[in-house]
Design a protein around this nucleic acid. Structure first.
Lengths: 125, 125
DNA sequence: ACTATTTTTGACTAATTAGTCAAAAATAAA
DNA sequence: TTTATTTTTGACTAATTAGTCAAAAATAGT
């Protein structure tokens, strides 16, 4: 009952994830989120509640996948840089993730991801 | 000739650096910079020109120091996350830095810094 | 004292920010 | 058709953003 959803949560969250990874959390504006998702502000807030909740859903969606993809690393690094000191929930999420993944050269993986992302390696990779 | 400087560039840049590392580039506002430096907006712009130029001076000041301190890593990581795709100059600076430091477990150092900064290691370090 | 030069001051602007809300649209059950 | 429920719409707000600028203050040479 009620109006049918025009947008599917999963698709919307995927698009949000790409934006967050591209711009970072703070620099990704609501206008940007409107643009990439196709939803309007009211719908976004009605569906997700706040920008931080959008990010958390995007982060959790990434972590469902057990392998440490670049997408996951992207969201983890943004969490560490911009959100771990603002949200206890996010801090706990990445704490749990680190517990599960430490001892697997994860520090090295994080560093390598950043160098690749910044495109400073010289060999174009 | 002319009015004496009330604030010394070196001190101001040090304070800016601490702010950028604490908040990140985007999240560090001009109001924040006014607060930590003691200078007013007009003085800051008269002395530095723009927020990005303030950041570049802070970054270059860190890199003068040949050792890779946490302060340096902080500025480097912010550059990679928030600025390497916005400023060719900054990209070049961190490209040069990486050239000088690669092969010294620098990826590991970067990852370890982030984990320490986010305080997710479990052992409180 | 006067002039030239530099630095500081803080009010100002135009743009952007996250978030709100009442109304409209869409649906299914009664 | 009416009613209850859900989703979408987009204009709106209050706060914050980076950056500007004319005026005042401070200094040193003439």
């Amino acid at each position: 009952m009620g109006r049918n959803k025009k947008y599917q949560q999963v698709d919307v969250i995927e698009k949000m994830t790409d934006l967050f990874i591209q711009k970072g959390y703070t620099a990704a504006s609501l206008d940007d989120l409107v643009k990439v998702t196709g939803m309007l502000r009211g719908s976004l807030y009605s569906a997700f509640g706040s920008k931080q909740k959008m990010f958390i859903l995007a982060l959790q969606n990434c972590l469902k996948n057990s392998q440490t993809s670049d997408k996951t690393l992207g969201m983890i690094v943004i969490s560490m840089m911009e959100l771990s000191n603002k949200s206890e929930q996010i801090k706990q999420i990445i704490k749990d993730w680190y517990k599960k993944n430490k001892g697997q050269f994860i520090e090295n993986l994080i560093g390598s991801y950043l160098i690749k992302k910044a495109k400073i390696s010289g060999d174009g990779i």
